[in-house]
């Protein structure tokens, strides 16, 4: 089947190059927004994370924390020292580096390392 028959509207569409490039930008922005969308953390998940954090802190266990912010995704590994409820931060001690302060609002997953 010829292309004209297969896609007569694709062949005949009249778009200004400026319009096409702005549509491409719009589609790209949508794609980025969709792929970097912040997951919604519900109350139950928050409670589970708090439980894991308390358990790790009490037992001196290492946790893996995954965060997501506008700069992208990050993974941290360390032993939780304390939670700063005023600043909503989790402070962890990493194996090699200094203590890290992680924004609790950016946490998307929290697990105990094997």
């Amino acid at each position: 089947m010829s292309e004209k028959i297969r896609s007569q509207f694709g062949c005949s569409k009249m778009m200004l190059p400026e319009h096409c490039s702005m549509l491409r930008e719009q589609a790209l922005a949508e794609y980025r927004a969709e792929n970097n969308r912040f997951p919604e953390t519900d109350e139950q998940l928050r409670e589970e994370q708090q439980y894991i954090l308390d358990e790790a802190r009490a037992g001196g266990k290492t946790v893996i924390i995954k965060t997501l912010n506008s700069n992208g995704c990050n993974h941290y590994m360390g032993i939780p020292l304390r939670c700063d409820s005023t600043g909503n931060k989790i402070i962890i001690r990493t194996e090699t580096g200094p203590d890290l302060s992680i924004s609790a609002a950016e946490v998307v997953s929290l697990t105990i390392a094997d």
Partner: peptide, 23 residues
């Protein structure tokens, strides 16, 4: 091809698929 396309259009037949990619 244009003649065939006119015949199809006159009968309301269209094989086009709606391409979601705007560009």
């Amino acid at each position: 091809v244009n003649g065939e396309l006119l015949w199809l259009n006159a009968r309301g037949i269209d094989y086009s698929t709606l391409e979601t990619n705007s560009a």
